[in-house]
Design a protein around this nucleic acid. Sequence first.
DNA 1: CGTTTAATTGAAAGCAGTCAAACTATGTGG
DNA 2: CCACATAGTTTGACTGCTTTCAATTAAACG
Lengths: 245, 245
Amino acid sequence: MTETVHELTLMLRHLERHMPLTAEDRDRIFALPVTVRDLPPSSYLVREGERPDVCSVLISGYAFRQKLTRDGARQILSLHIPGDILDLQHLMLDVADHNIQVLTRASVAIVPREAMRDLWHASPTLADAIMSSMQIEASRFREWTLNVGRRDGRARLAHLLCEFAVRLDVQGLADGKGYELPMTQEHLGDALGLTPVHVNRMLRSLEADGLLTRNRRHVGFPNWEWLRDVADFSDRYLHPPRTAA
Amino acid sequence: MTETVHELTLMLRHLERHMPLTAEDRDRIFALPVTVRDLPPSSYLVREGERPDVCSVLISGYAFRQKLTRDGARQILSLHIPGDILDLQHLMLDVADHNIQVLTRASVAIVPREAMRDLWHASPTLADAIMSSMQIEASRFREWTLNVGRRDGRARLAHLLCEFAVRLDVQGLADGKGYELPMTQEHLGDALGLTPVHVNRMLRSLEADGLLTRNRRHVGFPNWEWLRDVADFSDRYLHPPRTAA
DNA sequence: CGTTTAATTGAAAGCAGTCAAACTATGTGG
DNA sequence: CCACATAGTTTGACTGCTTTCAATTAAACG
């Protein structure tokens, strides 16, 4: 008898982080009709202009939101880790205003839009939890605008590395000492509003200063406090759960 | 017997734009305990780190969200026009992650946080309307990140001018031919991630090309289509109501 | 009006972009 | 196991958009 973990366990953990859920709420989540789908790297989940009829939850792997300018420049708007709900916005909005793309090979749980809407209306605690998740994502969007608009390349890059470290840590997916960064330098550039060439130079600059170690895709932070400082990073905008000391 | 319009009429119009409300919903909104407050230019409504116990709705004048880097650089994150709810995020989040500041002299309706939470839980249509409003604001945050991250100064500025024109038009506060821009060039710079000096140059560049007229604070758009084009502007991300032809 | 705030302009400096080439991984097929 | 192909990283030289610094002009305000 194999002990299988429900596909939405991570999503549940994500939602419960900010709002305690009732036992019925948990049951409702686990009763959601889901289809699990495996996606190869870089595949699109949602394209701008589409009218999606499903909501997806990231189960494993990484994903990101992005928009393109008319001449094809790409801006990555947010990164997503397992447990994140990828298109809550389509609960209310009919037409997608940005693209959602998978970063690595990933598996997602597909939930019919109507089922997710029912969940959303099912209980006040669920509504609050879902709303909280939305709000925190909006807070991350704001910080990214600040990052791209007002910090120089080095700080911008350091900030992104800090954010990812903290988020993985909170979701229990990294030990806080480092992680496998799933992005190429081109991805990093698109997330930071920089060119890949400049990303490379800033990466090496951080490395040269002993703020960063790299091994294949693995990044480590030999001097976390100093990196935070260089990045002008504070985790307030991530609204970390109280429990953390 | 003077015919007075309720202070929250514009907010109601704002919420109803994307989600039809019931008569009871409207009554609930008008039954909200509000205190109207007049604020001088530049006053703060919320400061990062605070724990607000009220929600404010902008009745007249303009406001904006902003964040500061450690060394005092300011990034304006969004602009707000009458009818906008200014701190929905504090419905769920306890600590403010950014500053909310008034641009011009403005009056705001102050609603106790708990009353707004009750409104939010009062009916599914209200919850949907409030959620929609949130989602659309999140969409604007995303577009701003794209704007600041991937467009050059000229396009960035043109984009902001387009967005403001469309939003005022939709809310019925401008005729679509132009408007009183309530921002100084310093504000514009902080919204665009540029210096005021460069904003000035780009403003004059647009003016020289016949894309923009300025008279005191009034801006006009002699060639709207071309400006849209220069700005790489599409109103999709604003999720304009269907009604518009 | 005088004073303060905002807009404008010029010259010089710099961060980041562009272009191009070399180098390193990683993977594939023979 | 090597040859080749592909994707990603690294470097260098040069360009350029934007900033910085400073000074001047215009507008707003009491």
